[in-house]
């Protein structure tokens, strides 16, 4: 579904991604790990459509369509979901209104009729139950005054609402206590199916105890330097990133 070839990206002439190659198929869970500053977050935000970075080389196709040509909103409507490491607060905009606009924009893009208020509220109730999010979160303004854990839960709730084909979760575990981590991971697991894929970006192995990956990739200095099965995460945990750094020092 997602095919990334030789992707290069930079900011202010500083090259951060230096030739990423990655193929993701439906039903797969990929984990991307790596030390700080290796380009993990850059990769995810470039795929989500951030204009902060400039893609200088390479390609990314999503179901055959050129992803890099699309504005961020069309990538979302095509079925790409990006969970933020630091979700943004939008004061005064209610979660209900925000999600209803988003869901109906998706439907419009796919030539479906927008949901009526009652259809939408029904969908929201179902999804809230699925990802175990409290009602009071959805009654508030988007992320406003949410705790770190609440913000992350809210990302997973939005993922449930938008039913993406591929979800990129950027450091979803950062700032979560163990209970919140379990709820968030359960949510992700429940949303998993044969038809969708998940990309988990993380620094630590901890999250991967809950969301078990099919593949683990190690990103270092803007390149994927190692790919293997889930056992690679454990090896990394044991040996630390210095092990990678030593091997791939330029």
């Amino acid at each position: 579904m997602l095919e990334i070839k030789n992707l290069h990206a930079k900011i202010d002439d500083k090259e951060i991604l230096r030739g990423i190659n990655l193929t993701i198929k439906p039903g797969e869970v990929h984990a991307i790990m790596g030390p700080n500053g290796s380009g993990k977050s850059t990769l995810s935000s470039v795929l989500a459509g951030s204009e902060v970075f400039e893609v200088s080389e390479g390609s990314a196709t999503f179901y055959g369509k050129d992803l890099l040509e699309m504005p961020a909103e069309d990538r979302a409507r095509e079925g790409l979901f990006y969970s933020f490491q630091y979700p943004v607060e939008i004061p005064g905009v209610s979660m209900v209104n925000f999600m209803r606009t988003a869901v109906n924009e998706h439907r419009k893009y796919n030539n479906e009729k927008p949901y009526s208020a009652s259809e939408f509220l029904k969908l929201m109730r179902e999804k809230k139950k699925l990802v175990e999010i409290d009602s009071n979160l959805t009654n508030r303004s988007v992320n406003e005054g949410f705790s770190g854990g609440e913000k992350k839960k809210n990302e997973i709730f939005q993922m449930a609402m938008l039913q993406p084909k591929i979800s990129i979760l950027d450091e979803t575990d950062s700032g979560l206590d163990i209970d919140a981590l379990r709820i968030v991971a359960n949510g992700v697991n429940k949303l998993k199916s044969e038809d969708n894929a998940t990309v988990v970006i993380t620094h630590y192995q901890r999250l991967l105890d809950y969301i078990v990956p099919d593949y683990v990739h190690v990103l270092y200095k803007g390149r994927i330097v190692m790919s293997a099965g889930k056992e690679l995460a454990l090896e990394l945990e044991e040996k630390g990133y210095d092990w990678i750094k030593k091997q791939f020092e330029d």
């Binding site: 989500a48 459509g49 504005p71 979302a76 409507r77 939008i90 606009t101 988003a102 924009e105």
Partner: peptide, 14 residues
């Protein structure tokens, strides 16, 4: 804020 909305499928205008 705008980018956050974009990634949820909202156009910049919206």
């Amino acid at each position: 804020q705008i980018f956050y909305c974009n990634t949820r499928g909202l156009s910049t205008e919206d």
